[in-house]
Design a protein around this nucleic acid. Sequence first.
RNA 1: CGGGGUGUGGCGCAGUCUGGUAGCGCACCUGUUUUGGGUACAGGUGGUCGGAGGUUCGAAUCCUCUCGCCCCGACCA
Length: 582
Amino acid sequence: MRASRLYAPTLKETPSDAEVVSHQLLTRGGYIRKLTAGVYDYLPLAHRVLRNIEEIIRQELNRAGAQELLMPTVQPAEIWEESGRWQKYGPELLRLKDRKGSDFCLGPTHEEVIVDLVRRDVRSWRQLPINLYQIQGKFRDEIRPRAGLMRGREFIMKDAYSFDVNEEGALQSYDAMYKAYQRIFTRCGLDFRPVEADTGSIGGSRSHEFQVLAESGEDAIVSCDSCEFAANVEQAELVIRGESLSSSPEMKVLTKVHTPNQKSIEAISSALDVDKKSCVKTLVMIADDQAVMVLVRGDHEVNDIKVKKLLDAQEIRMATEEEIKELGLVSGFIGPYQASNQAQKATWLVDQALKGKVNLVVGANELDYHFSGVSLERDCPQLDRYADVRLAEAGDACPRCRGELRAFKGIEVGHVFYLGTKYTKAMKCNILDENGQETPIVMGCYGIGVTRVMAAAIEQNHDQDGIVWPVSLAPFKLHILTLQSNKEDVVSCAEGFYNEALDMGIDVLYDDRDLRAGGKFKDADLIGIPFRIAIGGRGLKEGVVEVKKRSEKTVYKVPTTQVMQVIAQELAGQNALNSFTE
RNA sequence: CGGGGUGUGGCGCAGUCUGGUAGCGCACCUGUUUUGGGUACAGGUGGUCGGAGGUUCGAAUCCUCUCGCCCCGACCA
């Protein structure tokens, strides 16, 4: 491809609405343009990257025995009503009507469609296992699209669905996909970690996320530094650290203290000069319209997903200011001791880290007052439901080996779920097993955010000047620049290499534009192609051109006669540049 | 949805407080110049100032409504 013809308008300045690096660089490099919030055009460069990612996915999934197909984007409401998700999915599901007034939606995921497909055609256990996947545009009407491609409303996703006779088979399918994912993300040049995860609205019981480690990630994950354990903080189960307190701490007297306007744990702990660990946060949550009081240590964070699971609730949220008042509570001064009658009737959950703790500070349920010297078992004997309800954090003990957990930020690029029979039961997708018994098929489902992989790769591979693509994803592998476009020997040399590269089947971008060297270098760094050949009059006098890897600073002077061979070797993964000078 | 911010040629911004008929840089076009890290000079194209309504002799600027976009958002009890 000649740069003079390439549709890749680069920008000198960063667009003001781009916050994260991947969004900035993709926009500046002429890879993407925004159409509207969370919806983007993928220009030729981006399209090439996406095709590279898709190709890696195809190769690995096909190798794992999956088959590609393509399902519709527009889906009828009926199948969503069958699965129960027409009601449950919420406003994220973009719904529309056809001219007759029938309900449809834009597919955010395809469990319903694929189950409908499979139940028509599959009758016997002999036809299983089956694993089907597609690579397709998805639409989810996110509350708040953000960070460019990282959380868009329309995005490209690979979704796969496995169908097995029984749980054992399904777990084998799950395992095969898990391994395929590891190969896929490795080949994409990503630094990632598979982590245990919550199953979310897709449902199911066993699940791993594939998280790309990056500061800009939205997900918080913890991983053990002494074993393989890694999990999303929402999921990570916690164990009580055997903190050796002084064997029987003296229990202080319960005292009411004046704490004017001190509503936060921060304020209380500094005003009363007590450790945050000795304060108690009492949160009011609403689980399926029922009030729930949750107690955690002052320095801990509540994990609403754990609370939701514990109560077997469909929905969980924090109470509003009004709801708190209705319960007869005073926001900022809530506590378990002498709470209002209405509040007493609510469900109370206490984080296990508070079990047996003494001399705590809690809200007094009265404006501007707290109680200190509270010992839960002595003063609040009614609290009897202790459980793990908080978020994991760095320093917590590993639930497997008791090692120490470290915290990371991650970008979720892939997710694998063991689904079980959730959808096949609801939609009557049955087979006859070996014994002639009718039984629901056991499913798994597996997603990869293709567009998000592209963004994540940039979050992990960039410098001040632009993108540094892993070779496997790069839109072109080789970038040839002429440093002076008016010198005949320079141009003819470049044309020669360009044609040679084309003959060799190398994806090559040839910057033949009538630009000064500076501009070409800037664009080359921005776009991020792994290998660059710069041809200038100075070098040609010595019979050399300059070869540089985007990922390294070093510029190598390579004789013109050897350049293409060296490039070919480097692209094949051999070190051929090291023997040249500079 | 709640909170905050913002909307002025393709991009980045000034002008808005204090009303007087739109400006700068980049990009783009023409010419000359320059040619190894975004050359220099000259000339030029392009804007219903997000939209609607209002106040006024006069509105980018003041008022009302509305739309888009960006950021933050359980709590920190």
